[in-house]
């Protein structure tokens, strides 16, 4: 029996589907950690708003920025929620590709062992086509995921600016400047954590494929 060369190619392509699943799981864990940080920023910002209130007029700017950081944490949380939806769809698609791959490999073996059967050949061809379709859907999810991540990256840049400005504002806090400085330093630190997570996410080999 002659081997269909396209089958070999699709199989090696599909074998990355299992790795994709592992990568997606890691991406999802990273997303969860960012959501946890967003939650932390929300609490920190609330505390900072109270602190600014206590500091009175000297910390007016700091209070405004803390409010903005709170809004930022909520935006971040909802952006990450959007990511989770795409992740869910990507997992579904990867599972479908894995199933295609398993069926193709077993049908291939049946074809080889039986010496070739026209109907199995037709079934293989159909399943191959379906797998190509599923793989292209997976690529679409990958692009969508990448796009959402770019939006998140911009959002985080904004968060970074807010944290830096809060640091500057803290310096004008007179008697409260130490406390305000500490809080703004913490803001800066957690935004940095998120940036770090995003860099990790972008490095995932899941995004290196086309």
């Amino acid at each position: 029996m002659t081997q269909n060369p396209s089958i070999g190619i699709s199989q090696s392509r599909a074998s990355t589907a299992g790795q994709d699943l592992v990568r997606i799981v890691r991406i999802n864990e990273e997303i969860k950690s960012i959501v946890a940080v967003a939650f932390k920023i929300n609490i920190m910002a609330l505390n900072a708003i109270f602190l600014a209130k206590r500091a009175g007029t000297t910390a007016l700017g700091f209070g405004v920025l803390s409010n903005e950081l709170r809004v930022f944490s909520q935006d971040l949380k909802s952006a990450m929620g959007g990511l989770s939806g795409v992740i869910h769809e990507a997992v579904t698609e990867v599972s479908v590709v894995l199933k295609d791959q398993r069926l193709i490999s077993l049908l291939n073996r049946a074809q080889e062992e039986s010496g070739g059967n026209a109907r199995v050949a037709a079934a293989l061809e159909l399943r191959q086509k379906q797998m190509v379709e599923h793989q292209s859907q997976l690529r679409a999810h990958r692009r969508q995921l990448k796009m959402v991540m770019e939006n998140v990256a911009q959002l985080v840049e904004l968060g970074g600016v807010l944290a830096k400005s809060a640091k500057i504002e803290a310096a004008y806090g007179q008697g409260f400047s130490n406390a305000l400085g500490q809080v703004s330093g913490e803001f800066d630190g957690v935004v940095e954590d998120i940036r770090h997570s995003l860099v990790n996410l972008n490095k995932s080999e899941f995004f290196l494929q086309r």
């Binding site: 398993r102 077993l106 073996r109 049946a110 080889e112 062992e113 039986s114 010496g115 059967n117 109907r119 199995v120």
Partner: peptide, 19 residues
């Protein structure tokens, strides 16, 4: 089972047209 499909299919084919 799924894992033995190739073996069953090919043995069957030798005796009978699976179609």
């Amino acid at each position: 089972g799924a894992e033995i499909f190739p073996a069953v299919f090919s043995a069957l084919s030798a005796e009978f047209d699976p179609a």
